[in-house]
């Protein structure tokens, strides 16, 4: 009873402003004839029509697929590479300048090169997203492994834990909080690259939808697509946070 009330209160405290803003937007834009700012009601109408025609679904699916596959590729390569590099002080020192270069490279710059080379289908886009996602994960994995307590290393030595087992049961779990932080950065990189690659050259996807509707001056649809991409980014990060919370339960609970 009490908890329901406090939950409701917390919800109200957080919800009043967003709701108010949407309401203001709705009424302030109503009857607006400026073509660049279509009424929110019209944006909503175009959302309903596009969704019921089934077209929007395909765009949404194409974008989500590219993000998820690209991210998965980046995470696998990043974690494996980061583990190999993180375990060797020598390798870390030798590769460091190259890793820093790739981390600070504005990743969108690879899009024209990859799309120019391999065409406007989905696969090159996934390549580009995957490539960009590697670096945050890789560097965070290296840092996470380096930060593992020397006491843990002593334990592994003293009890003669085999190398493979120590990698999977000690090193990777120990670095997991950092790795997760890296994946989170990669997720937002992936969304940005998805949008840019689809606006740059594509035949499907939400970014593509935004791009063609702009060309056709269907501003209500452009706005709708833009809001949808924002919502997509938000939902993906919410889902990721839920996964992270589960995976790192020991970490959050042991800290408190």
């Amino acid at each position: 009873m009490r908890s329901t009330r406090s939950f409701l209160l917390a919800f109200l405290e957080q919800a009043w402003l967003p709701v108010l803003l949407v309401v203001i937007w709705w009424f302030a834009s109503e009857g607006n004839t400026n073509p660049f700012f279509p009424p929110l009601s019209k944006i909503w109408d175009s959302f309903v029509t596009e969704m019921s025609s089934g077209q929007m679904e395909l765009h949404l699916w194409a974008s989500t697929r590219n993000i998820l596959i690209g991210l998965a590729v980046g995470v696998v390569v990043g974690v494996v590479g980061g583990t190999v590099i993180g375990l060797s002080r020598r390798l870390r020192a030798v590769l460091n300048p190259y890793l820093q270069f790739f981390r600070t490279l504005p990743q969108v710059a690879i899009i024209p090169i990859i799309i120019g080379a391999f065409g406007i289908t989905a696969v090159p886009k996934i390549w580009a997203i995957g490539f960009a996602c590697i670096w945050p994960v890789l560097l965070n994995t290296v840092d996470g492994i380096r930060a593992i307590d020397p006491g843990v290393r002593d334990m592994v030595d003293a009890y003669r834990i085999t190398t493979w087992r120590s990698i999977f049961r000690v090193v990777l779990p120990g670095a997991l909080p950092q790795i997760m932080a890296g994946i989170r950065i990669s997720l937002s990189v992936a969304v940005v690259l998805m949008v840019v690659s689809e606006i740059y050259a594509a035949t499907e996807g939400v970014g593509y939808f935004i791009h063609i509707t702009t060309g056709l001056f269907q501003t209500d649809k452009t706005w709708m697509g833009t809001l949808l991409v924002g919502l997509m980014g938000y939902l993906l990060s919410v889902i990721f946070l839920l996964i992270e919370k589960r995976a790192l339960r020991w970490y959050h609970e042991s800290a408190s």
Binding site: D149, G151, D154, M155, Y159, I161, R169, G174, W250
Partner: peptide, 28 residues
Amino acid sequence: IGIVFQDYSRSLLPWMRTVDNVAFPLES
């Protein structure tokens, strides 16, 4: 030889249950 370290909080792995921590060297 088994070694017991001074800093117990660091030599026990926080992501494993206590029994798994104890059994870990055997697992290995």
